[in-house]
């Protein structure tokens, strides 16, 4: 382990800033056949809702240039099973804390999830998804209105002593206003960005490829959007940012940290290459040598100085 890679999120020291993003990594154990997942900084676990959800009908995936659209729709076994089955299964193979991603369709559902996650030793951070583009009546609607975002943040903060990070949607006119509202409501950090709403159509039939017509676009293509938004939010808030969006290499990690991220999440890259996170972590030490970086914590927000 290279001490120079360590970063701290709300008092929690991570061996390195690399965290697989929620929804692209399941509950971790699918990746154990490929490498020892304990090399990761942490894992953002699959978005969990109060009730079990099957999600959307297939096709749920459409490939794009430099990325993909997904419309999974928060498929998950529900809060109870995540805690009684998925977490114990993950704990057998992973000895660090996780970023527990929760989602809901009403404030009470977020609160119920946060309450339960608060009691779990395995949970280091509660990440509140107010930005899922793939479910109707909720999810993203909390993330597109500063007042609603603040309301969810406040409600969740009231029921947990764990750090609360709000995962923001890029599908808004002014992401800075929403980030500020979350900070004012007590958020401990910001995770950003979730996927961009996108669509693809079949050349032969003219019909949408995704059953739900629209889905969340992610992958290297969205990196510049994520970098720009992280840069803007870093200027406006004083809480840490987990940078997400198109991270696929060690170089991407450095660039995202320059923009203002304290840690990063790797999403779509895990689908293209199950070894993506391992490769990034392995490549970081030689890259920081090359860039004359003493330790990663020094470069957070360098673009602003």
């Amino acid at each position: 382990m290279d001490k120079r890679l360590a970063v701290t999120l709300s008092g929690w020291e991570l061996d390195n800033p690399v965290i697989p993003a929620s929804g692209t990594y399941g509950f971790g154990y699918e990746f154990c056949e490929f490498y020892d997942i304990n090399i990761l900084g942490s894992i953002a676990t699959k978005g969990t809702t109060l009730e079990p959800r099957f999600g959307n009908p297939t096709p749920r995936i459409a490939e794009c240039e430099m990325g993909m659209i997904n419309a999974v729709g928060l498929q998950n076994p529900g809060l109870e099973k995540v805690i009684s089955e998925e977490f114990p299964k993950l704990q057998k193979v992973f000895n660090k804390k996780v970023v527990a991603n929760i989602s809901g369709f009403a404030i009470e559902e977020y609160v119920a999830c946060a309450k339960a996650m608060d009691k779990q030793d395995i949970v280091g951070i509660i990440e509140v998804n107010i930005s899922c583009p793939n479910v109707r009546h909720g999810g993203m609607s909390f993330g597109t209105d500063p007042q609603m975002a603040a309301k969810v943040t406040k409600a969740v903060k009231e029921v947990t002593s764990k750090p609360v990070y709000i995962k923001l949607s890029p599908n808004v006119t002014d992401i800075v206003a929403i980030a500020k509202a979350c900070e004012e409501a007590g958020a401990d950090g910001i995770s950003m960005i979730n996927t961009l709403l996108g669509a693809r159509f079949d050349l032969k039939t003219g019909k949408p490829i995704i059953h739900n017509i629209m889905g969340g676009f992610s992958g290297p293509a969205i990196k510049p959007v994520a970098l720009r938004m992280v840069y803007q939010v870093y200027e406006a808030v004083n809480i840490p940012i987990i940078g997400i969006g198109g991270i696929a290499s060690a170089e991407d990690v450095i660039e995202m940290m320059y923009a203002g991220a304290t840690a990063v999440q790797v999403g779509a890259a895990n689908c293209a290459d199950p070894y993506a996170c391992q490769k990034i972590i392995n490549n970081l030490p030689s890259l920081i040598d090359k860039l004359n970086i003493e330790k990663l914590e020094d470069i957070i927000g360098r673009a602003h100085r």
Binding site: T24, G26, G55, T58, R60, N70, N270, C271
Partner: peptide, 8 residues
């Protein structure tokens, strides 16, 4: 390989 739930 079972991680993303894209084909459930």
């Amino acid at each position: 390989f079972g991680a993303c739930m894209g084909c459930s």
